[in-house]
Design a binder for these strands. Structure first.
Length: 785
RNA sequence: GCCCGGAUGGCGGAAUUGGUAGACGCGCUGGACUUAGAAUCCAGUAUCCAAAAGAUGUAUCGGUUCAAAUCCGAUUUCGGGCACCA
């Protein structure tokens, strides 16, 4: 009988659809989560499948091990990608999104994954974003959401404001354009309030070190001191932040960021024009240009400050290498011990005083000869005693710019009233529906397209009843994805975002699978949201994802798969030609799951042949059943032991190669015996089941089982019964392989060594054995002269 | 510049963490079956040598060890992250 995968796969997918797994509260839970995709127009390619196959195999393995699993899927459908796609294709985002979801869902079903589609969530569904808005209102209530007029990252191409995380290195994450600054009123979330907890709780997580480090670097905690410098002959003080208070005696000038607010007050008359010119130039430079300039630029203000410790009169400069939005936007410069300050001092011929030599302080008054670590503490103590500054901690993390001047997002549920100011929409009036409009394209002014719909914007103030206007900005895509994992556990709840008991039952997520590209974006935001919801008593855990797994990318022709590069491999054709199980197996076999790898179409032939062989083997031998014997029992134990070990260590590529190897061995064994025992046959089919579920169901059924294979149990193995009677021992002379012997497992050491000597008689002839090394069951090494 | 990872046959990759390097698969070569092809099966496939024997071999050089892809030191190179954060 030929392996008719089309028939088999259709048959069992229909059967799974009909017979849903029963809920069973007595079983331990396992929440296995994929990062939900945004439904793009180009559909899924084999690279997307990699993560999904991995998580599904894991979920199925857990089912067989007696867990009740939660394995849901949904759509991150708001946001720029969906909107850009819609604009490009001249279709309303609501329509194109719906269509794209249908296609992606069809493709996902092809995998034969155990997704629980009853739990599907969609961030653009009003019943969903009602709760996205609700969380925002709670943050507003707690003072974590606030408005601010500020220069923002502006992408002239996307015509949108970008979060810092979306504008790394001044390049727009979406389109690659250079980002400029624009002054706009924005909604901000005070993620900085959570900086410390976000940093510290990384310790609770079983995540790849790399991701933890990226988050820690992004938060960027640094310890130091703030110090106030008096301006010479003016009643002004400039506050600076330094991580090196020990070098305070070496501070020979100050530098302010061009945006610093004190500049106007302290600039001297003769320098005024020059300074204004410099500030103007700096403001016109884009963020990238400012960063790309290797050569330092700057201008002297004509004013001086007093170094509070050595009372030296030091010049105050302005330069764009000082960032306005970190710490106080002003620094003290110690050119002797900082490369950037040194460069600046050299260029503008400023004084350089060395204050540390051989780790000891010099030129530092009463602190001379102290070790610099100790000096740091003592100088901060002095600063605090003199009340000219204090210990301080700073973070690189900035508050989260939360509004977008875009159509396709959740409306921010706030009303602007001339009398009452900012008025939150009443909870009972949620969701604030996104109005349907014709022109949803972004505007040149930086205003949201929603602002044009007067009937929607103009509203009565819920507080005083007077004229008021709705907030027209929308939320960023990250809003919906920052809490979606909570909604899966109770996706139809009308009264709260999810029932507390259900949250308690399922959360936190036990296994989270997705790409590393979300290391500092989604994963940081989701942690922040979870901590906030913890604080207001909605959830009772501090971290949403206990274990994170980043699957590697699949490349084609050494390049990341993308439609624009034309190197996309579609799963649809492969499913037609080889079937879902073959594709699943190859997705795993292609390489170590955490590493990037190269896709090779002909590679799938190998796993396809394996499934054919396996199918034919079972079909033939199910009619040649024999009693079990020692060799078969040993084989079976080794099989289950090895496959279990490899799954547990997530080495899924070697699970597949292992199954192939075991099949080759078993076929040889069975040829000798003229048959196989039923238990070995059963065990083998079960060990294949998590990875190739359709064919496993079919074979399980063919050998006489009526229930689904996923109602059976992952087989056990007897660790004490995995050893053949004879064992192969490699013989070495001076560490080089010189022979092999097969010996009885119970033979004692002396006799084995004797056998080895006999075997190597000729090669040892005339040589003196200096040492014999015997590694049981493995190696004998004779060291000779 | 700083911080992480990698580098193993023609290719993707194994190697129980110091113990027979190259499992498994792809590809290739030869053979069987066939009118022929497809499919399947058998044998071979790191390099040098006609072959046996042997030697060499896990980016390079050196070290530790009876024994190194694995540990240590230096170097080359590819990829990723961060990058004027004071």
């Amino acid at each position: 009988m030929a392996y008719d995968f089309q028939m088999i796969e259709k048959k069992w997918q229909a059967s799974w659809e009909r017979n849903k797994r029963e809920k069973n509260n007595s079983k331990p839970k396992f929440y296995c989560l994929d990062m939900f995709p945004y439904p793009s127009g180009s559909g899924l390619h084999v690279g997307h499948w990699r993560g999904y196959v991995l998580s599904d195999s894991l979920a199925r393995y857990k089912i067989l091990n007696g867990y009740e699993i939660l394995h849901p899927m949904g759509w991150d459908a708001f946001g720029l990608p969906a909107e850009n796609y819609a604009i490009k294709n001249k279709t309303h985002p609501a329509i194109s999104t719906k269509k794209n979801i249908e296609n992606a869902k069809r493709q996902l079903k092809e995998i034969g994954a155990v997704y629980d589609w009853d739990r599907e969530v969609n961030t653009t569904d009003p019943e969903y974003y009602k709760w996205t808005q609700w969380i925002f209102l709670k943050m507003f209530e707690k003072g974590l959401a606030y408005e601010k007029e500020m220069p923002l990252n502006w992408c002239p191409n996307c015509k949108a404001v970008l979060a810092n995380e979306e504008a790394t290195n001044g390049i727009c994450d979406r389109c690659g354009s250079s980002v400029t600054k624009k002054m706009l009123r924005q909604w901000m979330l005070k993620i900085t309030d959570y900086a410390d907890r976000l940093l510290e709780d990384l310790d609770l997580l079983d995540w790849p070190q790399k991701v933890k480090k990226m988050q820690a670097d992004w938060i960027g905690k640094s310890f130091g001191a703030s110090v106030n410098f008096k301006v010479w002959e003016k009643d002004l003080e400039i506050e600076i932040f330094t991580t090196r208070p020990d070098t305070l005696y070496g501070a020979t000038f100050l530098v302010l960021a061009p945006e610093h607010e004190l500049i106007k007050k302290l600039v001297s008359n003769e320098k005024k024009d020059e300074v204004e010119e410099y500030i103007k130039k700096a403001s016109e430079k884009s963020y990238v240009d400012r960063m790309a300039d290797k050569e330092k630029t700057g201008v002297f203000t004509g004013a001086y400050a007093i170094n509070p410790l050595n009372k030296k009169k030091i010049p105050i400069w302005i330069s764009d290498y000082v960032l306005a939005d970190y710490a106080t936007g002003a620094i003290m410069c110690v050119p002797a011990h900082d490369d950037r300050d040194f460069e600046f001092a050299k260029k503008f011929d400023l004084e350089i005083i060395e204050v540390i030599k051989d780790n000891k302080l010099i030129n530092s008054g009463e602190f001379n000869d102290l070790d610099y670590d100790e000096a740091r503490k003592k100088i901060i103590d002095m600063i605090e005693k003199l009340k000219i500054g204090k210990r301080q901690i700073n973070y690189k993390l900035r508050d989260w710019i939360f509004s977008r001047q875009r159509y396709w997002g959740e409306p921010i549920p706030i009303i602007h009233c001339e009398k009452c100011g900012l008025v939150p929409v009443d909870e009972k009036d949620l969701p604030v529906l996104l109005p349907e409009i014709e022109n949803y394209e972004p505007t040149e002014t930086g205003e949201s397209p929603l602002a044009k719909i007067e009937s929607w914007v103009n509203i009565k103030c819920p507080k005083c009843g007077e004229k008021a206007k709705r907030e027209t900005n929308t939320m960023p895509q990250w809003a919906g994805s920052s809490w979606y994992f909570l909604r899966y556990v109770d996706n139809k709840n009308k009264f709260c975002l999810a029932d507390k008991n259900l949250l308690k039952k399922w959360m936190p997520v036990d296994y989270y699978v997705g790409g590393i590209e979300h290391a500092v974006l989604h994963l940081l935001y989701a942690r922040f949201y979870t901590k906030f919801l913890y604080d207001i008593g909605v959830v009772d855990f501090k971290e949403p994802f206990l274990k994170l797994f980043n699957q590697g990318m699949i490349n084609k022709n050494k390049t990341k798969m993308s439609k624009s590069k034309g190197n996309v491999v579609s799963p649809d054709d492969l499913v037609k030609k080889y079937g879902r199980d073959s594709l699943r197996l190859y997705e795993l076999f292609v390489g170590p799951p955490e590493l990037d790898c190269e896709w090779n179409d002909s590679g799938i032939e190998g796993v396809f042949r394996f499934l054919n062989k396996f199918y034919n083997f079972v079909c033939e031998y199910k009619n040649k059943l024999i009693d079990e014997n020692k060799k078969l029992v040993i084989f079976r134990n080794k099989l289950v032991f090895e496959i279990t070990r490899r799954i547990e260590s997530l080495s899924l590529n070697t699970v597949v190669s292992g199954l192939m190897e075991f099949l080759n061995d078993l076929m040889d064994l069975c040829k000798n015996f003229g048959g196989v025992d039923i238990k070995t046959l059963e065990n083998f089919i079960i060990t294949l089941a998590p990875f190739a579920p359709h064919i496993s169901e079919e074979l399980w059924n063919l050998i006489g089982n009526e229930k689904s294979i996923f109602e059976s149990e992952w087989p056990k193995y007897d660790k004490n019964n995995m050893q053949d009677d004879f064992v192969n021992i490699a013989l070495q002379i001076n560490g080089k392989l010189r022979g092999n012997i097969s010996v009885d497992i119970n033979l004692e050491r002396e006799k084995i060594i004797l056998l080895a000597k006999e075997n190597l008689e000729k090669k040892l002839d005339g040589k003196e054995i200096v040492k014999e090394i015997y590694v049981p069951k493995k190696i004998i090494n004779f060291v000779v002269k």
